[in-house]
Amino acid sequence: MAGHTDNAVVIDAPMDLLWSMTNDVPSWPELFSEYAAAEITARDGETVTFRLTTHPDEDGNVWSWVSRRTPDPETRVVRAQRVETGPFEYMNIRWEYAQQRDGVRMRWIQDFHMKPQAPVDDAGMTAYLNRNTVVQMKLIRTKVEAAARALAGAEPGAPNGR
């Protein structure tokens, strides 16, 4: 048995803005509510290796791990995997961005398997990720749409500075 999640949100913002904000790993502590720190440890072309550290959870635990992420600006797909897997046997993530009439659809697909000694099983982690992903996607949508409105308001010739 393995865990799998598939969540998406439509964000009313230009593709390039969404792409740049969500692929700027060092800014993730400002974009996501769960991360206290994001540190790039290596770069190889488009691929970045980085350490994420969370804010303390409800039990006071701070989690930290290393991941590798490769964005492809041509296909608007990002592939990522945990390098330090922690409680996971493996964790693979795919982000997809697709232009739609009402904005950009950002989709996260996560495939994983928990280690036998992990504090939760695949079903428990699937439920957690499905809850938390919705929260994080809504937060990202709010922040990216605010940035898009701010940029639109700064454009020369916009009525009333908008």
Rank of each mutant, 00 (worst) to 15 (best):
D121F: 00
R79Y: 05
R79A: 04
M114F: 12
R107A: 02
M114R: 10
P119N: 09
S64V: 04
T54K: 07
M114D: 10
R141A: 14
A147C: 01
A80W: 13
R101Q: 12
E58D: 13
V120C: 04
R131K: 08
A127N: 11
E58S: 12
I140E: 11
E84T: 13
P119Q: 07
P29E: 01
F32T: 02
V62H: 09
D59Q: 13
E84F: 05
Y35G: 03
E34I: 14
P56I: 05
P71Q: 11
R141P: 06
A37L: 02
R69C: 11
R149L: 13
V48Q: 15
E39L: 10
R43E: 13
K115F: 11
I140Q: 12
V104K: 06
G103T: 05
R105P: 09
I93P: 06
T70Q: 09
V120H: 11
K115I: 08
Q117S: 08
Q100E: 14
A36Y: 05
H55R: 11
K138V: 02
L31W: 11
T70M: 07
D44I: 02
P29Q: 05
V83C: 12
T47N: 09
H113P: 03
R94V: 13
P56S: 06
E46H: 10
K143I: 08
S64N: 09
V25L: 14
D59M: 08
V66H: 14
W65Y: 12
L139W: 01
Q117N: 12
P26G: 08
T126F: 03
Y128E: 11
R79K: 06
